[in-house]
Simulated assay, not measured.
Amino acid sequence: MSALSRRKFLAAASLAAIATTASGLSKRAAAKQSLMHIVYYWLKNPASEADKQKLIDGLHELVTVKQIKYHHIGVPQVFVEGDPQKSYHVSLLMVFEEAGDIDVYHKDPIHAKFVKECGDLWGKIVKADSLAV
């Protein structure tokens, strides 16, 4: 299998795994067009385990926002050198029952506290949102 087709396969398999995990949401939630919000964080100081743990601890508090129906906080699983999207340090996946819930989440004081306390830890973030169809 060529590197490009292997990467396409791994990307498709990753998306399928996320979709399968999130499928625990009710059919009613899917009918309301649930939203998956994915964030990848690159630390300013990747050698600092303390910074990484502070970010992870902050994320665990962040996901207590009541609009979040499911979450996953993770780190890259490196099993093949050079796979796409393995350069990030911490990831966050959140599922909202309705697409509009993300707007409420962004205004929640818990979100503001997270950004204030942890915002200086990352040098780069990449966000992606996906609506259920």
Score class of each variant (00 low, 15 high):
Lys66Phe: 15
Phe96Tyr: 00
Val78Gly: 03
Leu15Ala: 10
Tyr70Thr: 02
Pro46Gln: 01
Leu131Lys: 12
Ala47Lys: 12
Asp83His: 08
Gly58Cys: 02
His71Met: 11
Gly123Tyr: 06
Ile56Ala: 13
Gln53Tyr: 04
Tyr70Val: 07
Lys44Trp: 06
His37Asn: 09
Leu15Pro: 02
Gly24Phe: 10
Met94Tyr: 00
Ala128Phe: 08
Leu15Ser: 10
Tyr41Trp: 12
Arg6His: 11
Trp122Asp: 01
Val90Glu: 00
His72Lys: 11
Phe96Asn: 00
His111Arg: 15
Lys32Cys: 09
Ala132Asn: 12
Asp57Thr: 13
Pro84Met: 00
Val104Gly: 02
Leu59Tyr: 12
Gly58Ser: 09
Arg6Asn: 11
Asp51Lys: 05
Tyr105Cys: 05
Tyr70Gly: 05
Met94Cys: 11
Leu25Ser: 11
Ala99Met: 13
Leu10Gln: 11
Ala31Asn: 07
His111Glu: 13
His89Tyr: 04
Leu59Glu: 12
Leu131Ser: 10
Ser130Trp: 14
Thr20Pro: 00
Leu55Ile: 04
Leu10Gly: 07
Ser23Gln: 14
Ile110Gln: 15
Val115Asn: 15
Tyr40Cys: 09
Asp129Cys: 05
His60Cys: 02
Ser23Leu: 08
Gly100Ala: 10
Ala112Trp: 10
Tyr70Gln: 12
Asn45Ile: 02
Phe96Gln: 00
Gln53Val: 03
Val80Phe: 12
Ala50Gln: 13
Gly74Tyr: 04
Pro46Thr: 01
Asn45Glu: 15
Glu81Phe: 05
Gln33Phe: 09
His72Asn: 10
Met36Lys: 01
Lys66Cys: 12
Phe9Trp: 06
Val63Arg: 08
Leu10Arg: 13
Ala50Tyr: 04
Ser91Thr: 11
Asp129Phe: 04
Phe9Pro: 09
Gln85Cys: 07
Thr21Asp: 09
Lys86Ser: 15
Val39Thr: 06
Asp103Ala: 14
Ala50Asp: 13
Asp129Ser: 08
Ala3Phe: 06
His89Met: 03
Leu25Gly: 11
Lys54Asp: 07
Ala22Lys: 05
Leu93Cys: 02
Ile110His: 06
Lys86Leu: 12
His71Trp: 12
Thr64Lys: 15
Asp51Leu: 01
Ala22Ser: 15
Gln53Cys: 05
Tyr41His: 08
Asp120Ser: 13
Tyr70Pro: 00
Gly119Tyr: 10
Lys44Pro: 15
Glu61Lys: 15
Lys86Trp: 08
His71Glu: 02
Ala17Glu: 13
Glu49Asp: 14
Pro84Cys: 00
Ile102Leu: 11
His72Gln: 09
Ile102Thr: 02
Leu59Met: 14
Glu49Pro: 14
Leu10Asn: 14
Leu131Arg: 07
Ser87Met: 00
Val90Ala: 01
Phe9Met: 08
Val75His: 03
Lys32Phe: 09
Ala132Phe: 09
Ala19Asp: 14
Ser87Thr: 05
Ala3Gln: 12
Ser23His: 14
His89Ile: 04
Val63Trp: 08
Ala16Val: 08
Glu81His: 04
Leu93Val: 07
Ala19Trp: 03
Ile102Gly: 04
Glu98Pro: 00
Leu121Lys: 11
Tyr105Met: 07
Ala22Trp: 09
